[in-house]
Amino acid sequence: MTREAAVNAVILLLLVAVPGWALYADEPFTITLATRAVIFALAAVGLNIALGLGGLVSLGHAVYFGLGGYAMGVLASHAQNYTPLMEWPFVIEGTKSMPVIWLTAIVVSAIAALLIGLLALRTSGVYFIMITLAFGQMIYFFAISWPAYGGEDGLSIYVRNGFPGLNTLVPIQFYGLCLALLLIVLLFSALLARSPFGLALNAARQVPHRVETVGLDPVRLKLVALVISGAITGLAGALFADLNRFVSPTMLSWQMSGEIMVFVIIGGVARLFGPVAGAVIFVLLEHLLGGISEYWQVFLGIVLLLIVLSGKGGVIGMLAGRGRAHD
């Protein structure tokens, strides 16, 4: 077992043990905090596929996170008002069923990632960063000025959506559901990195022209990576909206994009458990520092600056050694 695998195992153990303890000690708030961390981790695992594997510095992942959230908000609000989404050419009803909402969130985010990717991947480097940021802002302003679904105020849902066989209103059951999804996606992400696609993508990040020489299209590889990445982050968005029973344009804001990226960097880019470690640390910092000072983000900024300037490859990099996972 390598040191990184040991670190990963400890993280996994904590994700099970801490909420287990909280259940035993009757601390529902800790479970909610853990759920928040797990959902952020899921969003960041999504970004890590584009960022770590594909080398795509997307500063617009809030688009997918927010669209996932709105997929939940729109479907559930139609269901709670008993109004259909559309009546022509065929009737689409709202729904309170999580699996249907998740699927919608995944499909909608994937389509958004495809459209944004088709345009943004015409360029690379710093242009790509600015363009993903700009398209993120476009969707954000659209959500604010489009009055049909709450505009700036967002949408509230009275009761959390349901999952067959579970009572999602019980915190630990909803946590279990989120954790299960995170583990499935982590497994998928690990398999993806070792698959022929993942290897080709890795090569396309490092030496695009050689990949082209052997007959693969590096842009198409990156586009697929971005679509997969967006779809996963969209799923996380649907869960986040369900956790809060609320969705608003804040989920689409550029700060959200920055935060999702921060999760990945604190933990370690291109490390399987990097985004998980990063999200857990972020939520802990937010909770602990937020209790000390209203202006806790100053300290978050300083911590972040030190992590980046130290260049050790995030927390996993510091614990597991061997500098960076790539480059």
Partner: peptide, 20 residues
């Protein structure tokens, strides 16, 4: 450094400036 580090470090600067 690569652009990713620049983005992150200057994002951290935004947090420090804004909250400060």
């Amino acid at each position: 450094r690569d652009h990713l580090d620049q983005v992150l470090a200057t994002f951290a600067l935004i947090l420090i400036f804004s909250e400060g």
